[in-house]
Nucleic acid binder design. Structure first.
Lengths: 234, 234
DNA sequence: CGTGCAGTTGAGGAATCTCAACCGACGTGG
DNA sequence: CCACGTCGGTTGAGATTCCTCAACTGCACG
């Protein structure tokens, strides 16, 4: 075993443990059960830009982010890319191929050095049968993601780009709390893709919001929210 | 008991049985288990225009359509309405409030005389624990709905109104199969809301597609698809 | 020090919305 | 049975939003 292999191994085992213990869908179980689960999951690491899966893949594993972040995106018929969501530690993806035996429709790409845990369909099904409470957790996660996604679709169809950008910024605030300064977790390009517009328009709209005294641009990725109310009721 | 009550009763009991037996999430169970489930669900009927639930409600039941159809829609901040989906017999809604103990974000309205079966959180949880395979069915349904919703969001953000309308029409085709004549299941108004545009634009775009020889309007709700290929690759 | 990429700015044009008028089907009340 | 109002749908004209293309800046990296 080479030196590289050893360090790989060490990383894996650490992430392994970290993974399971922090995952919302498992964290109601006791230590013994955790141990059992740890034996069924596989840890993997990806470098920035590497794909975890791509549209058309059939791999039937559930992928849970342990460290880092994943970009989930789609390509439209016309080749344009839309950012669907960003997965942070504790969140998972791959449910479509796993529960429906169909191919992936999305692409999952590591945004930075990212480690994940993967569990195969067979193992998961065994776990679900044995510990039905895990199903409930997954149902919770899926139904709230469904709701978010439907809300996003509704926003696309009923609200202007300006409103979508504004409520995106306001949403960042509630998560950060305390300070009125939010940090954009995405490049402007990804942000544009996420809210369904172009980088140029994002740039212009941010400028407009600033002129309206609703926000203040501090640095390229830091924005101070001056008036959350007005931001939401544009 | 009045005559009206009796007929109500009869309708309920029929729909009751019909409901459970045709629901995809239950239909892998045997007759005995079906009987058990039937005792835990409640049948209800709604007239056209009645609301099953509204945004802000906390009711914690899963609602499964038995006969008829439900419009699920949202209201944006600005009061505009977006049609999220139409539920046909066998499909369900209410999962958000049920699994997450939050309030409904959507409205569910009967589009015609509609009968549904409802199962409470408590009953469903018991069933899920007792028959874990039901969870798998629900997970399947939710993950594929999630996928549809994400696809819809992606289409909103990357494709033109014309393309969205075209692929909506093409999608109708695969379901009907055989004949190239599709029947619009929605009013133009609802269709517009569903694909995120206005009735005026739908009308104009249909005209354009007809001029391009891609479709032919037969009656107000019947359309012949002349060139599915071109329709998809607009 | 060049090259490349993210971001910004400007100008022009295309897509789509809004408002308003009009048509036809339908149901209601006189 | 007819007149009327309502509603869904269509059409037109003008306004608006947003995209596209192109030029330019600043920054990171080799």
């Amino acid at each position: 075993m080479t030196k590289k292999d050893q360090s790989e191994k060490r990383v894996c085992s650490v992430s392994h443990r970290g993974c399971v213990s922090m995952v919302p869908i498992f964290n109601h179980l006791d230590t013994l059960q955790m141990e059992e689960i740890m034996e069924t999951v596989q840890a993997h690491s990806f470098k920035r830009g590497e794909l975890i899966y791509r549209a058309g893949d059939t791999s039937d594993v559930l992928t849970i982010v342990n460290k880092g972040s994943l970009r989930i995106y789609r390509l439209s018929e016309s080749g344009k890319e839309q950012l669907v969501r960003v997965l942070k530690p504790g969140e998972f993806t791959g449910e479509l191929a796993l529960f429906n035996e169909t191919v992936h429709e999305n692409y999952a790409e590591a945004m930075e050095a990212t480690s994940v845990c993967q569990i195969t369909r067979a193992s998961l099904q065994k776990l679900l049968i044995k510990y039905p409470s895990i199903s409930l957790k997954i149902l919770q996660a899926l139904s709230s993601r469904l709701d978010e996604s439907e809300q996003q679709a509704a926003q696309f169809s009923t609200e202007s780009t300006e409103q979508r950008l504004a409520s995106y910024l306001a949403d960042l605030l509630v998560e950060d709390d305390q300070s009125a300064i939010v940090t954009l977790p995405l490049t402007k390009k990804d942000l544009a893709s996420y809210i369904g517009t172009t980088p140029e328009t994002v740039s212009r709209k941010l400028k407009e919001l600033e002129e309206m005294q609703l926000i203040r641009r501090i640095s390229s990725s830091k924005i101070e929210i001056l008036d959350e109310e007005k931001l939401l009721f544009l």
